[in-house]
Amino acid sequence: MDRFTPKLLKLYRAKKAAFGEDMEQLLERLDERVTDVVNHRRTTALKGLPLFLREDPNKLFKKCKDTEDGAKGVSIAILCVLEDDTQATSPEVVNIAVVLEQVVVLKDLPDISTALAYLFGLLYALNMSYPQALKYTFDTIQNVFMELGSGCTKRVLSLKNKLL
């Protein structure tokens, strides 16, 4: 992932107007970060990937408060559990988890990129189908980042050519 992060961020910045407000906000939050920049860049690259591939990132990246059951009704997701502090302007992430079939299968993960790697590994090892709403995102992870498999969709091939 570290090999592709700088190029992905350049692509996002070059075409951010085409992706609307979500991409703009994602890149603005990255620019505001002054600590742990490498992790924030990697996270921004991953959160921007579904947007860039014209998929809904909210189907993959979910948020909930620590007093809620964030896995309910979720088939596949990376769940960021936020502290339930009504006074905080930007609540702190207290847990990052992987959800499969409405069950938290892994929790207390260090960051989004680790959680996504575990999620992909579980889907791949269990031979589960990728969610239709995120097929290009997971196709990119499989064929570009992990270099597994030989065929990919035209959309992913186009992105791969831009990155290489």
Rank of each mutant, 00 (worst) to 15 (best):
E24Y: 11
L30E: 06
E83T: 15
A115D: 00
F61N: 08
V156W: 03
D56E: 11
G149L: 06
I96F: 03
L109F: 06
G48Y: 01
E28D: 07
T86E: 05
V34C: 03
E68R: 12
K10E: 06
D139H: 06
A97G: 01
D108V: 04
M23K: 13
F4N: 10
L159V: 11
V98W: 00
E21V: 11
L157K: 05
L134G: 05
R29D: 02
P110Q: 11
L116R: 08
Y130D: 07
L46D: 00
N58E: 09
L8N: 02
H40Q: 10
V144E: 00
I78F: 01
L46C: 03
A117M: 07
Y118I: 03
A117K: 14
E55Y: 08
V74G: 04
P110N: 08
D85C: 02
T35E: 06
L164R: 09
Q142N: 11
P6L: 03
L79C: 04
R3V: 15
A77T: 06
L11A: 10
D69L: 15
L163D: 01
T153H: 09
E83I: 15
Y12M: 07
Y118A: 00
Q102I: 08
K16P: 09
Y136D: 06
R3G: 14
N127H: 13
G70P: 14
M128G: 14
A18G: 15
K135W: 03
F145A: 11
Q87L: 12
D85F: 12
L51M: 11
R41W: 10
G70C: 09
I112L: 02
M23E: 03
V74D: 02
V103T: 03
V93P: 07
G121S: 05
K107G: 09
P91Q: 04
S129K: 12
K16F: 13
L122A: 02
K47R: 14
K10H: 05
R54C: 08
E21K: 14
R41K: 15
A97M: 03
K63R: 15
A117W: 10
N58W: 09
S90D: 09
C152S: 08
L60M: 02
A71I: 01
D84I: 14
V93H: 00
V99D: 00
K65V: 14
G70F: 07
E68C: 07
I141K: 00
N127Q: 10
D2S: 10
K154F: 09
F145V: 11
D69M: 15
R13K: 11
L82E: 08
V144L: 02
T86G: 15
D36M: 09
E147Q: 12
D139R: 10
T86S: 13
